[in-house]
């Protein structure tokens, strides 16, 4: 826990150093949030069919997504990946720490620090400065806010577990690089980063709900919106944490197998 706090601090420090970049990042996220909102505005104005989500809810969903974009596992931990690519990972074996645990805490820091810093300005802009119909709405209720906060923490853990797998995949050099490139787009799609999951065809819904990725954005956001009630919280957390734990175990197992390969190959 203390190691994690130190890592988080370090990441924040690193990010604060690049203030121009941070400001530009916030601006582009707001800007393209607006583009997305307008696309959905266009769709909603074009059809009178009943939709799984109202326009107002969709707008709020999009803004939350823009604010928490950095939380999503769309890339791996650069430093760990370089460690593996250069073969220096063999030296890590000499250290008396659990590699999976260490890398996981790094991933948690990677997923939470930038988000913590960027989310607040984006949320403030989206809820105060936008035209009324394009505004981020407050949580449906105090209970919804609490449920959202809890599942967002769960989403960070889940995202970290997935992020870690991208790095670990690199232990299998060529196919691992392919996986590390191929999987993030699927995660983006299945996690509801491109469009809210509810808009996908109905036959896909059971699969989408079962897969871990719905726990990244879709479930926390639906709790925020009140589409899922406080009664769904326990199930949502169990889904997130169950997957996070399972993927962390998978990571552990893959590391022990993958490192053997590295050692045999001579790194």
């Amino acid at each position: 826990m203390r190691a994690y706090a130190a890592l988080l601090r370090l990441r924040c420090l690193l990010l604060l150093q690049y203030r121009v970049a941070a400001f530009a990042g916030i601006c582009t996220q707001v800007f393209f949030g607006l583009v997305r909102v307008m696309i959905f505005d266009g769709f909603f104005r074009s059809s009178s069919l009943a939709q799984p989500m109202s326009f107002a809810h969709t707008v709020t969903y999009i803004w939350l997504g823009q604010a928490l974009l950095g939380m999503l596992p769309w890339n791996g931990d650069r430093e760990v990946q370089d460690l593996i690519r250069t073969g220096n990972v063999s030296y890590e074996l000499c250290r008396p720490v659990n590699l999976n645990g260490l890398w996981l805490s790094r991933c948690v820091a990677l997923r939470s620090a930038p988000t913590a810093l960027r989310a607040v300005p984006v949320i403030l802009t989206a809820s105060l400065l936008m035209p009324p119909e394009y505004r981020l709405a407050p949580p449906a209720s105090a209970a919804a806010a609490l449920a959202w906060a809890l599942t967002t923490a769960g989403a960070v853990l889940l995202a970290a577990a997935i992020t870690n797998l991208y790095s670990i995949a690199l232990l299998w050099t060529i196919s691992g690089e392919g996986i590390a490139r191929l999987v993030p787009p699927f995660v983006a799609l299945l996690g509801g980063m491109l469009i809210p999951l509810s808009f996908f065809p109905d036959w896909m819904q059971p699969l989408l709900r079962w897969l871990p990725f719905s726990g990244l954005m879709d479930v926390p956001f639906r709790l925020y919106l009140g589409q899922l009630g406080p009664g769904d919280l326990a199930g949502a957390l169990a889904h997130q944490l169950g997957w996070a734990f399972g993927l962390a175990l998978l990571g552990q197992w893959l590391i022990s197998r993958g490192l053997k390969r590295v050692v045999v190959q001579g790194g």
Binding site: F43, P184, F200
Partner: peptide, 22 residues
């Protein structure tokens, strides 16, 4: 493939809404 997934998301929206402003 990753680019194609984006088109899949767009197609899903058209399946729901029918058209986009004509």
């Amino acid at each position: 493939l990753s680019a194609l997934l984006e088109f899949f998301a767009t197609a899903a929206l058209f399946a729901r809404f029918g058209s986009l402003r004509g």
